[in-house]
């Protein structure tokens, strides 16, 4: 096998880790609240700006900046739910989609207003590791590991805690969880906080690799939606697997052609697959 192709494959797997984290967050929110947050990737953008300014502007140590960004993103998730989702919770699904679409406009424009359209980088250069002539970015390796740990932690939380079981129960039958003593409104807030927190965690990993600018959400937001749909909306394991399929297509496609065309390939693959399996690859 071509050594550069192998490198692309490995980088694809590593990219999949971060995408998986975001897909988990979006799927969790969709599965429980039943609303697609079109602006989900823009919460990542906000958290990346927070890291940038905390670290470069206020000289906050990086780990602390990360922690603050994660907590901030989780709070933003709660805020989004309270201000935008809760009022439209019983509206038509399209209205819910559009309400978060309005949020997307707002966040991107507000970021432009505050920070301008400059590309900003936190300037942390992590080494590139060499394994038997294969070069792997350390930042991506960390991102993959953290993504995996995050996914496992979320799985454990949903599987073994009362709150986690209540979240899964709500996703299956929202009308009667009240009879179990579960307050659905509280679960929505918890889920929005976790979803926001995962976006914050992803922001930490992305800030190590990419520049932040107001429209960075547009570059990977659509990819995350695609992954979630491919995995079956609300199906967290499906989304997890789909992350790695899509990231491979992007990585290998990028190796043979340009980045844009690799995304074109991924989106086309997605559209064609939807015709074959209209409810996603892993539909129940």
């Amino acid at each position: 096998m071509d050594i550069y192709l192998l490198e692309a494959v490995i980088n694809g797997i590593l990219l999949g880790g971060v995408l998986a984290l975001l897909a988990l967050g979006l799927n969790l929110i969709f599965g429980v609240v039943d609303v697609i947050w079109i602006a989900y990737a823009d919460i990542v953008m906000c958290a990346m700006y927070a890291i940038y300014f905390l670290y470069t502007g206020l000289s906050v140590p990086l780990p602390l900046a990360f922690l603050i960004a994660i907590i901030g993103a989780a709070s933003l998730g709660v805020l989004v739910h309270l201000l935008i989702i809760a009022p439209v919770l019983n509206s038509a699904p399209l209205n819910q989609l559009l309400a978060t679409g309005g949020l997307l406009f707002f966040l991107q424009s507000f970021a432009t207003l505050l920070f301008g359209t400059d590309f900003r980088n936190i300037g942390v250069r992590l080494p590139v590791l060499e394994f038997a002539t294969i070069y792997v970015s350390f930042a991506r390796l960390i991102a993959f590991a953290v993504g995996l740990i995050g996914a496992i932690a979320l799985y454990g939380f949903l599987k073994w805690t009362y709150l986690g079981i209540a979240i899964r129960a709500l996703a299956q039958d929202r009308d009667i969880v009240g009879l179990m003593g579960v307050d659905p409104r509280r679960i929505y807030l918890v889920v929005s906080a976790i979803g926001g927190g995962l976006a914050g965690l992803a922001a930490c990993l992305l800030a190590l690799q990419y520049d932040v600018h107001p429209f960075i959400g547009n570059t990977f937001g659509p990819v995350i939606f695609m992954i979630c749909v491919l995995g079956g909306l609300g199906n967290m394991i499906g989304g997890f697997v789909a992350s790695f399929i899509i990231s491979q297509i992007i990585a290998i496609g990028g190796y043979y052609s340009s980045t844009e065309l690799s995304y074109v390939l991924a989106f086309t693959f997605f559209i064609v697959l939807m015709f074959i399996r209209p409810r996603g690859l892993f539909a129940r």
């Binding site: 009362y162 129960a169 299956q172 039958d173 969880v177 003593g181």
Partner: peptide, 19 residues
Amino acid sequence: RRLFPRLSVEENLRIGAFI
């Protein structure tokens, strides 16, 4: 009945003891 179909029997009982 309205059990949670994709939770196990034990998980259904656990959620019954949520309070």
